[in-house]
Amino acid sequence: MALVLHDMNGLLMDLLAITLLEIFYGIASLALISLGLAIIFGMLRVINFAHGEFLMIGGFSFIMLTSAGVNMWIAMLIGAPLIVGLLGIVVERVVIRNLYGRIVETILATWGLSLFLMGAASLLFGYFQRGVSPPFGTLKIGNYQEGVYSIFVIVLAAAVYLSTYLVLRYTKLGLIARATMQNPEMASSLGVAREKVYAVTFFCGAALTGLAGAVLAPIAGVVPTSGLAYIARSFITVITGGATVIAGTGIASVLFGTVSQLTAILTRPVWGEAALLLTAVILLRFLPAGITGRYFRNGL
């Protein structure tokens, strides 16, 4: 009897461990795909509708570099972020620069950009680029098996958030970025070249988006329309998070990741997505400026 009880406990522990892992993975992937969008929105008040396509191009950059013989990790952690970051600089210069402060125009322009990038990707890369399979092996937890890559994604997301926080909090670049975000006119009166700050911010946001696209490519595969799969969730996360980049997007990711994964685990996958949407609707009803519009306003 004691033995059976122990087994039951063991089973329960396995289930708990695997469930936590799923929740953490849900949070991590949401946090990763949203961070770049949050930086560009939080710092520049630009709603980038081409965000999904930035993710897609990050994925393609990773796949193309890898198939050209570049080391997989270099392609993922350096190559893809760099390529999408540079794309971000071009986009900022050509599309965004003249539209700061004009929300509707930026939405329309970036929406057009998203269609353009999708079309360009289908000409350039097409639908038949051979992907890269998830590296690492698997982890056995009792009856369950989980990819080690999921753990890599969780660790990476945590590392990316931590380093973004450290950069914003403790470096001169971060100080300038925060000040410019709070009062761009005053910052420029103190000698800050606003346009340079915007370009650098756009580069960083785009690069982090490229990184996310590359990290998820082995799991999700990449086609020119991949952006469509990400865009809704990343927008909901960022809008619900509010304008505070790290705290807002972090908290919203934790909340949505937990709610949707838990619901999906306890009920059915359909309800997982519905729960995410419902939580967002309720939150925005009571906190129209997002979570950090009311709480953690002085955070990062």
């Binding site: 001169k172 100080l175 300038i176 000040a179 709070q182 009062n183 103190l190 000698g191």
Partner: peptide
């Protein structure tokens, strides 16, 4: 005054002393 409200006094001054 246009103080950066969410920056500390020290960081406000650091913004003035960038160069």
């Amino acid at each position: 005054r246009q103080i950066f409200p969410q920056l500390t006094v020290r960081d406000n001054l650091r913004m003035g002393a960038l160069r």
